[in-house]
């Protein structure tokens, strides 16, 4: 009796395990194919370099993958192009992220307040720029910025002004404006979701205690969206390190930007042969150094945040 019972149990457990695995399988498979394998491949590739098999001017017309140890990494870390690019994205992030997060929080607080009616329309409206593909948005902005056709400059010229959006000292700001436009609505949604999860009793209690709307915002709402803010900032840091669409589109009309204006552009152009050393090995090494950099920054931020909160 006990034996059959146990056997029955075991069979059921096995059946449950099978069902569970079947449910996990689609995720696990996709995760493996689109995530784990590509990462493993690029890590491996970052230790190899395709080298000419033969001698002569054209290297024999055949490349062989050769293990080069940390050579690719050494070249990335010693390459001024890479650090210049890193410097640009860091400067970009240091200015753009606080502005964007601040704007997103302000918009979310506005929508969450009782001041705004028809929240859905505004929510959708602010979010809309995010729904436009990055390259398309960058093209539209390039037109708006373009020195001779810019509608902004045409208006400014009428009053004797004009801004060169493509000047080397200005272009980072022009790009920051593009990404802020795209991502503010997205981050606002994160904040709005957090705000709407705050129990109404808290507000009620505060009001009974005589708190003003402003005090409610400062003492209840802002502290309680802290976790959401952390998420938004972490995502922004990672996104900034990987800045690619905007500089690539702008570089098409601003050749002075070169092919390594940001580290991601450098990785891409190393892959296609526009930046030397080129090939999958050097390109992978750049990507992995970038990933480590983004990870360190994100971890550093999370650490500081936890310490202060």
């Amino acid at each position: 009796m006990t034996i059959t019972h146990e056997g029955h149990n075991r069979a059921r457990r096995r059946r449950e395990a099978r069902t569970g695995l079947a449910f996990v399988a689609p995720f696990a498979l996709l995760f493996l194919v689109t995530f784990v394998i590509p990462i493993a491949v690029s890590i491996r590739s970052s230790f190899y370099r395709a080298k000419p098999s033969g001698g002569g001017l054209y290297g024999g017309g055949e490349l062989v993958d050769t293990f080069v140890g940390a050579e690719n990494y050494a070249q990335v870390l010693g390459n001024r192009l890479f650090w210049d690019g890193m410097g640009r994205v860091l400067l970009f992030g240091a200015v753009q992220i606080p502005v964007m997060i601040g704007a997103a929080l302000a918009l979310a607080l506005l929508l969450d307040s009782l001041l705004v009616r028809r929240v859905t329309i505004f929510r959708l409206g602010y979010f809309l720029p995010y729904a436009i593909p990055g390259v398309v948005a960058a093209l539209v902005w390039t037109y708006i910025y373009s020195p001779r056709m810019s509608p902004i400059n045409q208006a400014l010229e009428a009053v004797g002004g004009g801004i060169d959006f493509f000047a080397p000292g200005t272009i980072l700001g022009s790009m920051a404006n593009m990404t802020t436009w795209t991502f503010t609505g997205y981050n606002m949604l994160i904040f709005l979701a957090a705000l709407q999860a705050i129990p109404g009793d808290l507000y009620e209690a505060a009001r009974i205690d005589g708190a003003s709307e402003w005090a409610v915002v400062r003492r209840i709402k802002v502290p309680l969206v802290g976790r959401a803010a952390m998420l938004a900032v972490l995502l922004s840091i990672i996104g900034t390190i990987q800045l690619f669409n905007e500089p690539t589109v702008l570089a098409a009309v601003n050749p002075w930007m070169g092919k390594a204006y940001t580290p991601m552009m450098m990785a891409y152009n190393s892959m296609t042969g526009g930046v030397s050393p080129s090939g999958a090995g050097p390109a992978s090494a750049i990507s992995i150094v970038m990933a480590i950099g983004a990870g360190l920054l994100a971890a550093g931020y999370a650490f500081l945040q936890r310490k202060t909160v």
């Binding site: 290297g59 050749p255 002075w256 390594a260 930046v275 080129s278």
Partner: peptide
């Protein structure tokens, strides 16, 4: 063989 890699420096 590396001619494609010299364009960016020249354009800059």
């Amino acid at each position: 063989p590396t001619f494609p890699a010299i364009g960016a420096d020249m354009a800059q």
